[in-house]
């Protein structure tokens, strides 16, 4: 199966990425809204219905930080932390444009192109500098591919540093809230007519390892 590339956002960053990635599925308001996500899936609102859309590669090119948070992207404040090529801490997920601090359409479009070039394996035309990206090259590398948000945070701040701003991205809220944008209750309710089984309680993997 061909790689499924999804671009969220029809602004300058999303359009620029889409121009170089003709196979990609572009999600743009008002026709479609990506209102939530979980690994490998974005949840869409489309024609008044809620539906999941699977992806291998995702470009978040809309100012929807709660979508990035839903995938577990390491955050600094409301911005996903990205490397030179716009990669977030979650493999396969990129962020471009206003969500990482672009303040002009030109800058956003440049982000979109660089990410598309990186996805295509082409030499990127430049680098994305996430606002406040660490200057140290080793630190920058630690924020790219292959790191969990916690590992990326720990790499940046040390084992006992205050990592809450990065991997516990509640951003000053008492409890982390979703979704990225409101979804009609009736559209959500229409997804299912049969009662799902009650999910069984979970057990602490750490405790079970200790037991063995």
């Amino acid at each position: 199966m061909a790689e499924r590339i999804v671009i969220v956002g029809g602004g300058p960053a999303g359009q620029a990425a889409a121009a170089l990635l003709p196979e990609a599925r572009l999600i743009a308001r008002p026709d479609e809204t990506a209102w939530h996500g979980e690994p490998g899936t974005v949840w869409l609102l489309r024609d008044g219905a809620v539906e999941p859309l699977g992806f291998d590669t995702l470009v978040i090119a809309a100012p929807v930080p709660r979508l990035a948070i839903a995938f577990g992207c390491a955050m600094r404040g409301w911005q996903p932390v990205v490397d030179e090529a716009g990669r977030t801490s979650v493999p396969g997920i990129h962020a471009a444009g206003a969500i990482i601090g672009a303040v002009t359409a030109e800058e956003a479009a440049r982000h979109g192109r660089i990410i598309a070039q990186s996805i295509l394996g082409l030499a990127p035309e430049g680098t994305i500098l996430s606002a406040d990206l660490p200057e140290d090259e080793e630190e920058r590398r630690s924020l790219s591919h292959g790191f969990t948000p916690r590992e990326a945070a720990v790499a940046r701040l040390g084992e006992h540093g205050d990592t809450t701003d990065l991997f516990g991205p509640r951003l000053g809220e008492p409890i982390l809230l979703f979704p990225a944008s409101p979804v009609p209750l009736a559209a959500l309710a229409a997804r299912t007519t049969t009662p799902p089984a009650q999910r069984a309680r979970q057990y602490d993997a750490f405790m079970q390892r200790e037991q063995e």
């Binding site: 979980e38 839903a70 577990g72 516990g168 982390l176 229409a190 997804r191 299912t192 799902p196």
Partner: peptide, 21 residues
Amino acid sequence: LETGTYRLDIDRAAYSARTAL
């Protein structure tokens, strides 16, 4: 429990919404 984070279950949330409706 390692990260203190959680993940919603959209289909189960949908059934809660349905019951309420």
